[in-house]
Amino acid sequence: MTLAIVFWAELAIKIGIIAVAVPAIGMVLGFAEMKLSAHMQSRIGPYFAGGRFGWMQLMADGLKFMQKEDIIPADADRPVFRWAPALPLIGTMALLVIIPISAAEFGIIQDLEVGIFYALAISSLSTIGVLMAGWSSANKYSLMGGLRAAGQLIAYELPLVLAVVGVVIQAGTMSMQGIVEAQTAQAWPYVVTQFLGFAIFFVAALAELNRIPFDMPIAESELVMGYVTEYSGFRFLFFFLAEYVNMFTMSAIAVTLFLGGYWFWGIPTDSALLGVIVLLAKSFVLVFIMIWFRWTFPRFREDQLQTLAWKWLIPLAVLNVIATGAFKVLL
């Protein structure tokens, strides 16, 4: 009886943490993107809402989205259209669960034996949502966006998985907590030995996130807004939120796998607070690079992404796996 209460209480707390973290992260990153992109273009960016720096801009935007009418096109496949935005957000929330923030107890919401496997599986969930949105919108541009996303999924998922394999071989575990502990034990992050893997993972993650230079599913100059063309109001906000939170979760996974997660030289690993700070700082560096890319580069063409993935990333990733395996066996 008491065990059940503890279980439910724990679950409630965990759900609460995620429910707070998702909009918070989304807002912070959305704001960071607005501000940084503005500065990269010699603009000021938002400055009006909330007094200084326009820090309330995203809250104002969120409020605006909630007030807007939820328009569903007459020809749309209604249930699919309604549920499509939920999937990317669910996928994102599920990913947050396995990111370790400290070695202490409760340092991770749920440590899974097959943590990274789970992450890779869940991360493709958002593409299903995209495909659903594209299909159900009854809009040719949406359809093309959805199909592009599906084509992209196949191209980048393979290098993403193969890039992770190197780390898994080196750490000897698939648990996220275990991977960080392995890096703590050797006192330097895997990016040193797995730099190729890191680069491939980062490029593939960009493609997964549909960010420039791989934002073909949205490609606003070609497909208007791709799969989100017909969405408005709260459902649009879901896509928007999922995109930004996903940016963080993918960065956090990359940090955990390659950059040592919550570990840093000279910082104790058993403090949840310090762990969160280190993790956030490292993730933000990656997020910054993503923002930096987005506001510097044009986008690829769909066929060029396929070329990049199949002719470059996958062979390189395979090579990386072979080399890592050979070293592991030999040393």
Partner: peptide, 11 residues
């Protein structure tokens, strides 16, 4: 990337 970073610092 250098150009955008420089612009950001200048701003």
């Amino acid at each position: 990337m250098k150009v955008t970073f420089k612009t950001m610092l200048q701003t």
